[in-house]
Design a protein around this nucleic acid. Structure first.
Lengths: 185, 185
DNA sequence: GCTAACCTTAACGTAAACGGCAAGGTTCGC
DNA sequence: GCGAACCTTGCCGTTTACGTTAAGGTTAGC
């Protein structure tokens, strides 16, 4: 409670947290955090004298990133791992880019970065499009219902015809690979 | 191969498929389809004389819906189950709505429907927002890289400063419930 | 300098989402 | 009316993403 680690006269305190503090802060469990480290999604950050894991703000950011991808986007940890690797590669590329003046080299770095970015975008776009299509439909439905309800409460006649029937949205064959050959003539 | 089931003189053939055909069509496995039925996501549709599962177009739609939610939106089958139940309830509500003329009853049905729809929307909005925020950032990055590359290939000076550093996007505390008490006693 | 609270690794357990196999019944073309 | 191909219901195996002890070291308050 009465804890002020900010030694005003010393160096800028790095604000290192132990695993339970991190977990509480992010709404995760200590086990999950260790597991992410186990999978290589997270670098140990630092260890105390007695080998306690210590996390800095960057670690927190990274964990927030992981949590967001997991909870909100429904990515698997394997997919998240790829995204994080792409992020890391991006960082490294920026370094390499800065430390070279060779134009061909720079071009290669940029092309690699572009490739990664396009893969990321493709990975995300499929999800977004489907989900927002559903959202649009759901919200249209909500507005319809609200109008209907307003009509009813105003004693008006409900003349709004109910929209389409059946299962909503989703019809495009993003997967529709009717298997392989099959030679259907 | 020389198979035309459309008996032009008989009734409108319901076009029932066996499980392997369904699986192939949708890019799933027979096991997965049985599993979905096991979980109650799907009604048997129909059974042949020898209790073979037979699927109609509505089943196909429903399965496409499930697959889309699973693959594209990253929903768990439990979440999908809820969404489907809401859909089913919606259908039933429409029936109930049509078969009653009681205004209070109708109002209750509409309020229930509105509630479900709002829950669906909330469930979807979190996902969409996070994912499209990421997408925006990724695409901004792509455009930056493309400009950079174009400059380089045109022999121009790359004056574009690299954008932000560190882990991208995601900072809002949609989860950030700093875990209130400890009260586990 | 003791001890309660927290941490470590190691190991096993579990729910979800199927994969795969066994043992047997069903379809269907010939 | 028969065999190959497909289907059925079990039931056990597997991967993912952790939960849960177990058996100890570490920190921090008093």
């Amino acid at each position: 409670m009465t804890n002020e680690t900010t030694a005003a006269t010393e160096d800028a305190a790095p604000r290192l947290l132990k695993i339970a503090e991190v977990a509480e802060e992010l709404g995760l469990t200590a086990r999950a955090v260790r597991y992410y480290e186990e999978l290589g999604l997270l670098k140990p950050a630092a260890r105390s004298e007695g080998s306690y894991r210590l996390f800095d703000d960057d670690d927190l950011e990274r964990l927030r990133f992981i949590r967001g991808l997991r909870d909100d986007a429904g990515f698997s940890l394997a997919e998240i791992s790829r995204l994080l690797e792409d992020e890391d590669a991006r960082e490294r590329n920026r370094e390499r880019f800065r430390t070279t003046t060779d134009l061909g080299e720079r071009r290669k770095i940029l092309l690699d970065a572009l490739d990664r970015v396009e893969r990321q975008a493709t990975s995300l776009r499929g999800k977004t499009e489907r989900i927002s299509a559903m959202l649009d439909e759901v919200e249209a439905r909500r507005e319809h219902l609200q109008r209907h309800l307003a009509d009813l409460e105003a004693g008006r006649e409900p003349l709004h015809p109910p929209p389409t029937t059946g299962v909503p949205v989703l019809a495009e064959p993003s997967h529709a690979q009717p298997a392989h050959e099959e030679a259907r003539s």
